[in-house]
């Protein structure tokens, strides 16, 4: 008998409060190796909040989040292992605006002890033109591309993407789909929140719906 493969992301009975209001309550799901999962739900239902808690940005009030068996909100060693195994792109927040894209990638690469973007990534997202550009001088689409490249460095075991298609033109959207699919086919996982059902269909994602 073969041992069941451990999921990359495990979310167990997760609850998140913001401003005294419960946004996410008693949520459990998993993302397996090679799997793409889409979080869907109406505006304000807590998709971004959920992704922040998974990415280690917003502490949950209850429950457990593990990446490759290490708890995102556990003891220092465990939490560092978990967080360096995930690449996160938030919906609204940008990296510090005074940083150039090349510096953002260097920061992420140093934290994950990995190398700068590969030639495939540079080609897919047209990163050459962004390298010397300050984040606060970029258009929305350029900022998304810079952040996606930062999140993909490593590559991480789990991608956590909040509305990753925001501001991307048709060509870059195709690249995004290809990059996420390649990432999953390499045995990694991807979790994304989006309103775009067509994108999820293109990716062949399993859908988790938030009420």
């Amino acid at each position: 008998m073969t041992e069941a493969k451990k999921p990359i992301l495990e979310v167990k009975r997760l609850a998140v409060k913001r401003g005294g209001r419960t946004i996410v309550n008693d949520l459990s799901f998993e993302v397996g190796a090679g799997e793409i999962v889409g979080i869907v739900g109406k505006n304000g239902c807590g998709k971004s909040t959920l992704l922040m808690a998974i990415a280690g940005v917003l502490s949950p009030s209850d429950g457990r989040v593990t990446v490759n068996g290490a708890s995102v909100w556990g003891a220092t060693t465990d939490r560092n292992r978990a967080r360096t195994s995930l690449g996160y792109v938030p919906e609204a927040a940008d990296p510090p605006g005074f940083l150039r894209a090349g510096e953002l990638w260097a920061l992420c690469a140093a934290s994950r002890k990995t190398r700068p973007p590969t030639s495939e990534l540079i080609e897919a997202f047209g990163l050459d033109e962004l390298r010397d550009l300050a984040i606060d001088r970029m258009s929305l689409g350029q900022r998304r591309r810079a952040c996606l490249a930062a999140a993909l460095l490593g590559p991480p075991a789990l991608l956590v993407l909040d509305e990753p298609d925001n501001g991307l033109d048709v060509r870059r959207l195709e690249s995004l789909v290809r990059v996420i699919q390649d990432h999953a086919s390499d045995g990694h996982g991807a979790l994304l929140a989006t309103h775009d059902a067509q994108l999820l269909e293109q990716l062949g994602a399993r859908v988790v719906s938030l009420a």
Binding site: G56, R79, R83, Y88, P96, G97, L107
Partner: peptide
């Protein structure tokens, strides 16, 4: 501005 980035990158 770097808080969310540092947290998600595992910087304590």
């Amino acid at each position: 501005a770097s808080a969310w980035l540092a947290s998600s990158l595992g910087m304590s």
